[in-house]
Amino acid sequence: MKNQVTTIYKQAERFAEITKSAIVSGNIVRAKKCLALAERLFATGSYETKNAISNVYVFSVSTFMELRHCNISNLFPQSLKAEYLKQINTSGV
């Protein structure tokens, strides 16, 4: 069972990698499906699931897209976009 993912945070990390590989390969339809699934998990999941989607998935995918100068607002569903904006507007002070 070498590909077994143990925690919800590892699952979110792996899901982010799948989404990013779809973006890199130009498969925007698949990337949008991944983002829509993440949106649904964020909306209906447990507190831990929402936390994993926010802190691992959204952070990972949005950082990746920014580094590659992708337009985030066109891809991210509404709730994930709001979570992304909340992250970038949070001050570390």
Rank of each mutant, 00 (worst) to 15 (best):
88 I>N: 00
59 F>H: 09
93 V>H: 09
58 V>E: 05
60 S>I: 08
85 L>E: 13
55 N>K: 12
54 S>W: 04
60 S>Y: 07
90 T>Y: 03
64 F>A: 02
88 I>A: 05
92 G>L: 07
55 N>Q: 06
67 L>Y: 05
84 Y>E: 05
79 S>Y: 12
92 G>V: 12
74 N>Q: 14
77 P>A: 03
91 S>P: 12
79 S>T: 10
83 E>D: 07
78 Q>E: 10
79 S>I: 10
72 I>K: 02
52 A>N: 07
74 N>S: 13
80 L>K: 13
81 K>G: 11
67 L>S: 14
92 G>T: 13
90 T>S: 04
69 H>T: 14
74 N>A: 08
57 Y>H: 00
52 A>V: 10
69 H>A: 07
89 N>L: 02
65 M>H: 06
80 L>S: 01
60 S>L: 10
87 Q>H: 09
65 M>A: 04
69 H>C: 08
80 L>F: 05
78 Q>L: 11
84 Y>G: 01
91 S>W: 06
83 E>W: 10
79 S>A: 14
89 N>D: 07
58 V>L: 12
93 V>Y: 15
68 R>L: 15
76 F>K: 09
89 N>S: 11
62 S>Q: 03
74 N>Y: 09
93 V>T: 11
93 V>E: 15
72 I>V: 12
81 K>I: 13
68 R>T: 13
62 S>E: 00
66 E>M: 12
68 R>W: 06
66 E>W: 00
59 F>G: 09
59 F>E: 15
90 T>C: 15
83 E>N: 10
69 H>L: 07
61 V>P: 07
61 V>E: 00
63 T>W: 04
91 S>R: 11
64 F>M: 08
84 Y>N: 11
61 V>N: 02
91 S>N: 13
78 Q>H: 14
85 L>D: 04
69 H>D: 01
62 S>I: 00
60 S>C: 05
72 I>P: 04
80 L>A: 07
72 I>N: 04
55 N>H: 01
87 Q>Y: 05
53 I>C: 13
63 T>K: 01
68 R>C: 06
78 Q>F: 06
89 N>P: 04
89 N>C: 10
68 R>P: 08
74 N>C: 15
57 Y>Q: 05
78 Q>V: 06
73 S>N: 13
85 L>G: 02
89 N>V: 03
93 V>K: 12
71 N>I: 02
72 I>F: 01
54 S>M: 09
81 K>V: 03
90 T>P: 03
84 Y>A: 11
75 L>G: 08
92 G>Q: 14
58 V>Q: 03
72 I>L: 04
89 N>K: 13
69 H>S: 12
55 N>P: 02
55 N>C: 03
54 S>P: 07
87 Q>R: 13
53 I>G: 05
59 F>C: 13
88 I>H: 00
77 P>Q: 03
90 T>Q: 08
82 A>P: 07
81 K>D: 10
77 P>I: 09
65 M>C: 01
61 V>F: 00
72 I>G: 09
55 N>D: 04
92 G>D: 01
92 G>K: 14
84 Y>V: 06
61 V>Y: 00
57 Y>K: 02
52 A>W: 12
56 V>S: 06
83 E>Q: 11
60 S>F: 06
70 C>P: 01
73 S>P: 05
66 E>S: 09
74 N>P: 09
59 F>S: 12
55 N>T: 03
82 A>M: 07
82 A>E: 15
60 S>P: 05
76 F>L: 04
83 E>L: 07
69 H>N: 07
81 K>F: 00
82 A>W: 09
71 N>T: 03
79 S>K: 14
